[in-house]
Amino acid sequence: MIEFDNVSKIYPNGSIGLRNINLTIQKGELVVIVGLSGAGKSTLLRSINRMNDITSGDIRINGNSVTQASGSELRLIRRDIGMIFQSFNLIKRATVIQNVLSGRVGYHSTLRTMLGWFPKEDIDLSLTALQRVNIREKAYTRADQLSGGQQQRVSIARALAQEAQVILADEPVASLDPLTTRQVMEDLKRINRELNITTVINLHFIDLAREYATRIIGLRAGEVVFDGTPEEATDEAFAEIYGRAVKHDELLGVL
C-alpha cells in the first residue's frame, strides 16, 4: 500500500510540482497517471522511491515513511521498488543477463558485488524473469543489439529480478512504436495480475490508460483532478484533466 499524505513539491525556482496530494494506492492496483506534460506526472511517480525529494507531507509504503528514511533504509525501500524508464537505462555494452542481475545488488553487501559475481540462485532468478517477458533466449546477447521493445522488456525483467513489490514505470512506451507499445503494456499488465505487483504507470495515450488501468489518476498543474475507474474516465473527464478537448494524437489508435 502506497500512501500520499498532503504531499507538496515546490521547485527551487518557485514553480509548483505537486500540490496537496492525498492518495492511497492498494496492493495489486494498476494505476495509470495521466495529464499534460508538466502536470507533475513524473514528479509524483519519482517521489514514491524518492528519486525526487518532496517539499512537505509524507509518503509511506506499507506504513514505512519514504520521506524520513535514512540512507540504508532508503536503499532497502528502493530494493523493493522496480523502476522502468522511457529510455530503458540499460548498460548497452553489457549482456542482457548482466543488466538483469544488476537488479540484485541490493541483496548483497557492497564488497561482495564488487567483483560482479552473483550466486547461482540470482542467475536462475534472472533467467526466470527473462522467461516471464519472453526473451530468455537473448540472455547472453549484448543489450544494444536488441530492439527498443526488447530492451524495455529487459528493464522489466530487471525489476522482476529485484523481487519488487511495486513497479513504477515513467512513460515506459513513449519511445516505442504502436505494436511494441502494446506488447510492453501487455507484459506489465500480466505481471501485475499474475504476481500481484502494485504498478504505477505514467502514460500520455488516453486509450491505453483506459484499456490497461484498474484506476486512472488525472493530474493538472500538480493537483489530482480525477481519480476513478477507466469506465468513469470518459472523453469529458479527460477534457477536464487536460483543460481542453482530447486531440487525436493523444490516442494510440486501434490495431
Binding site: N49, M51, L74, R75, L76, I77, R78, R79, D80, I81, G82, M83, F85, S87, F88, N89, L90, I91, S102, G103, V105, G106, T110, T113, M114, G116, S155, R158, Q162
Partner: peptide, 19 residues
C-alpha cells in the same frame, strides 16, 4: 541513465559506480 537505474534499484554509492 544507468546510474539513475542503479540508484532506483537500491544500490550503494560504490555499487552504482561498479554497475
Amino acid at each position: 541513465g544507468p546510474l539513475e537505474a542503479m540508484t532506483a534499484v537500491g544500490a550503494s554509492r560504490l555499487q552504482v559506480i561498479r554497475f
